[in-house]
């Protein structure tokens, strides 16, 4: 008779298969609330504080294109792995990582543009409007760093051919998080246009 114990690896694996995705989804809920808090703070501030007009740097638009593309490549990469097209999968997942890095670079460029236009983060020259611009984008980027790390892991594992039709959980978790970051960015970008 084999009794099920926690030390049993099959059992552990089964629990992980069952719970990893819901854990991620509820984690995403909390991130949604975090940004809901921040963006509703912007709306409250807009009603009460002195509000400035800000020229949105075009680099943010380019960022948006990059991150949308990266979601597309991740989607294709994941589907390829699912259909056991390992080489195609590897390439598209690598492309996702590169696009993610390009997004990060364009965010930095956007900040320098903001700074050149006299929008500063803090100090006597700063305004709440400008500070929100930096805070919202930087906090999104902070979450994106987590996504990049997970993409790095997924890339290494896919190069080692650890993923296939049967074993995709890691890719699925990473891609769910990545698509979420894309959606979050699109929301924030539209929101920035709205508040500027």
């Amino acid at each position: 008779m084999t009794s099920i114990t926690l030390e049993n690896n099959d059992y552990k694996k089964e629990i992980k298969q069952k719970t990893a995705k819901p854990l991620l989804w509820i984690g995403l809920m909390s991130i949604v609330m975090f940004f809901a808090g921040l963006t509703s703070a912007v709306i409250v501030s807009k009603g009460t504080a002195v509000w400035e007009t800000i020229q949105i740097p075009s680099a943010f638009a380019i960022s948006t294109v990059f991150i949308l593309l990266s979601s597309l490549t991740f989607y294709i990469g994941e589907r390829s792995l699912k259909n056991n097209q390992l080489t195609k999968g590897k390439l598209f997942i690598l492309a996702t990582l590169l696009l993610g890095l390009l997004f990060t670079v364009t965010q930095y460029i956007a900040w320098t543009d903001l700074y050149k236009n006299g929008v500063v983060w803090a100090g006597s020259e700063s305004s709440a409007t400008g500070s929100y611009f930096y805070a919202l984008t930087a906090l999104h980027l902070l979450h994106l760093l987590g996504g990049l790390i997970s993409l790095l892991v997924v890339n290494i594992k896919s190069i080692k051919e650890k993923y296939n039709t049967e074993n995709l959980l890691g890719v699925q978790l990473s891609s769910t998080y990545w698509h979420f970051l894309t959606a979050l960015w699109v929301y924030l970008y539209l929101f920035l246009i709205f508040i500027a």
């Binding site: 983060w121 803090a122 700063s126 500070s131 805070a135």
Partner: peptide, 23 residues
Amino acid sequence: LSFPVLLSAALLLIFDRSFGTSF
């Protein structure tokens, strides 16, 4: 649903305290 909102409030407070923003 609610603790992340407190975190956002605390973060803005930290920015005001330590970095000189004016939220």
